[in-house]
Each structure stands twice: as structure tokens, then as C-alpha cells.
Write a protein that binds this DNA or RNA. Sequence first.
DNA 1: GGGAATATTGACCCACGGGTCAAGGCGAGG
DNA 2: CCTCGCCTTGACCCGTGGGTCAATATTCCC
Lengths: 214, 214
Amino acid sequence: MTGTRQLTAQGLERKQQLFDAAAQLFAEQGYAQTRVVDIVDAAGVAKGLFYWYFENKEALFRELAADIRHKLRRTQRRAIDRNAPALAQIAQGTVASVRFMSEHASFFSLLEVEGRNVADALRRGTEQHLQDVKALIVAGQEDGSVTTDDDADLLALAVVGAVGQFSHFHRTGRVDLSLDELANYVARLVVRILTADEQVARQSIKQALRPPRR
Amino acid sequence: MTGTRQLTAQGLERKQQLFDAAAQLFAEQGYAQTRVVDIVDAAGVAKGLFYWYFENKEALFRELAADIRHKLRRTQRRAIDRNAPALAQIAQGTVASVRFMSEHASFFSLLEVEGRNVADALRRGTEQHLQDVKALIVAGQEDGSVTTDDDADLLALAVVGAVGQFSHFHRTGRVDLSLDELANYVARLVVRILTADEQVARQSIKQALRPPRR
DNA sequence: GGGAATATTGACCCACGGGTCAAGGCGAGG
DNA sequence: CCTCGCCTTGACCCGTGGGTCAATATTCCC
């Protein structure tokens, strides 16, 4: 994979084959556990060919991550009704995200499971999501549907965190809800976080944090 | 490290040295990136000695994980006033957990970053925490301090998830709150999740999930 | 049909790092 | 002072797996 090279139709197809094979294998057994040989074997070609289409194993992974990131973003955009109130948009985005992550579960579990180099691929993925949500929260705070007691950044983290966390729990089999139920539950949770009555919360916390008697 | 062997005082000390060196290196650069050579170098001993005290690299890691798990559990127990209402106990536990994870940030980031074999060390760690929290939530629902009648399992996941997620965000520099502020915020969030007014949430979500007009 | 670009092959290279081992030191008890 | 079991050493072994390369096939286009 040196410099610029013109891929023919055949070339593109072959590249896609390798891409798909890699995606599946990574998902099944993890990045580190998948050897380049496995990928080319699965695609039924020789090892050297891998390096004709990809700089190396890591570069392939980056492409994969970028690809899924774009798909997620597109899904989110499509799910959102831009005329709805901010809070509603957040809920819609939440549902779509949970669904998407569940459908691409194998890939997201992959992200969680890998090393440093890969970890920032994950971060970059969240970064965008985070900003989108924050913007909606700010809008919600302005139109009064979202609590103003907390910083929009923190609330955005809570929302994105909830989505990611529950997707994770679902993936790892710790929630046995159906996909729809899950997505709904998370959306409800998120809305609750964003709209909750501060009175109740504040009072509880005050009592809760009274120093324990030893 | 074959069978049973009697460690002298000197032996125990040496083992601890290796243990500590490993903990630090793992934290700094990750498990896979840390070679056994690095560990023994840091401890100033020869490579072979490592295998006198530990079966292998992975076994050392398991010991490390078990160790931190116990410490976390102990910390949580100490922070909790067992006479307080359940909700208060949850809040106290939350604060303690966030603090602890922040103080041992390097180790927890380690857990996140590693592969399959290691991932279940993490799961086992959460499992216990999860059960404790669930028990408290059930108690809270009975004594009326937890006002949501959502499934206790789901709520427990939300609570534990929030703690883990925000500790993660803190670690990775996405929250620049002080430790105290962070712990407090998370506790508040948790309380809010457990006490929020269902009416408001349910209504919002209903509106929110109305299908978008295209 | 010929030459240039693209596509494909599989044997080979080699760094890396976990784990082994035979040999020797050292301290306590008999 | 000798022996036995803990302790320590560092050279060595070896599987693993990413990456290279020179040779060959195929396709494309003038």
C-alpha cells in the first residue's frame, strides 16, 4: 500500500472482502487474537495481498472504526426530528444509539476490549456524540425542558454514558430485555436524569451524605 | 512457582517488590505493553526470579486484580452507615467508590484497556458491587426512600454504571471537577435516578418518541 | 499484441517476548 | 562446617505473528 494507486473494480471488491472478513473475525475473537493470516485465509487469498490493500493491520482497524462511526452518526441524524423539542430529540437519539450499538454489538465490544492505540478510536467516536448531545441539552435548558441545575457538559456525559453503559450491559448479557425494551428504558432513564425534580434529589442527598456514625 | 513453597521474610518482601513494580508499570503502560523484563528490571532483579514468585505474567495480574477488588469492597463497607436509610447508604457507597476509583485510577484504566482474559476479572469485580447495590435498592423500595418502582436489577445497573462511567470520564480527563465535586455530583445523579418523579418522565418520553415527521 | 499498471502468490525474514534451566550463592539449623 | 532448602542469576530456547519481497498472473488500454 504505497502512495497513490488506482484500484480497479476487482480491486475494490477484493478490498471489501478483506474488510468484511476482518470485521467479522475481529468481532468474533478480538483484534489482537485475530492474525493477518486468519483474515486472508477467511477471504481465500494469500497473505501478501493484505498489504496490497492495507498499510498494515492497525490501519485496517482504523478504517473499520471510522466506518462504523460514520454509520452511527448517520443513524442518529436520521432518527432525530429536528423540529421536535430538544428533550425529545435527545430521547430519539438515545433510542437510535442503543439500537445501533446493539445491532453492531460485536464491533462495539471489540472497541472495549482492545489496547491503548484502539482506545482513542473509541474516544473520538464518543466525542462527536457528546457534542451533539450537549448542544441539544443547552437548547433544552433554554426552552425550559431540561434542568439548569447542572452543567450541560456533565449532563451530556451522563446521557452518553448511560447509552454506552447499558449497551455494554446488554452486550455482555447482564440485561435480558428485548432490544426495544432496552432502548425505551434507557431513553426514559435519560429523560428522568434531565428533567428530574431537583427538590426531591437535593433533599435526599443532603440526608444521604450526613456523615456516618461509627 | 511449583507446588507449595515456604517464603521467608525476605522472600515475601521480594515478592511484594515485584508486585508493586508490576502494578505501577501496568498502570503506566498497560498489561500487554509491559514485559516481564520491565518488571524485573524495575525491581532490580534477574528475569528468572519472576517465575520463582509467580506462575506467570497472567497469574500476577490476577493476584493484582483480586487485591484491588478486596480493597474496594473494604472501602465501600467502611463508608456505609448501616443504620442509615437504604438510599443514603447507596449515596455513601457511591461517593466512596468514586473516590477509590479515582485514587486507584491507573489500575482501573488498566482493566478497561485489556483483552478478553482480563475482561472477566473486571466483570467479577462489578458483580459483587452490583449485588450489594441491588439489595440496598430493594430495601429502599421497601422503606420508601427509593421512589422508583423500576426493576431493581436495572436500577442497580444504572447506579453501578454511573459510578464506573464517571470514574472513567474523570480518569480520561473529560471531567475536570475536583475529586470531591465529582463524587458529589455522581451521588446526586444516582439519587436523582432513584427518586425521580415518574409522571414527568413518562410524559416526556411519550412525547419524545412520537415518530418523527419526515 | 505488447507494454504498463494492477493483482496475486507464498516462501522467507526477523523482532519480540514469555518461559525454562542449570548453575551457583546464602543463611539457618544440626 | 556442612547440608538443605530458599533465593538469585542470565544465557538460552522457541513459538508466534507482523511485515517484506521477487516472481508471476491478469487486466487494461493504446
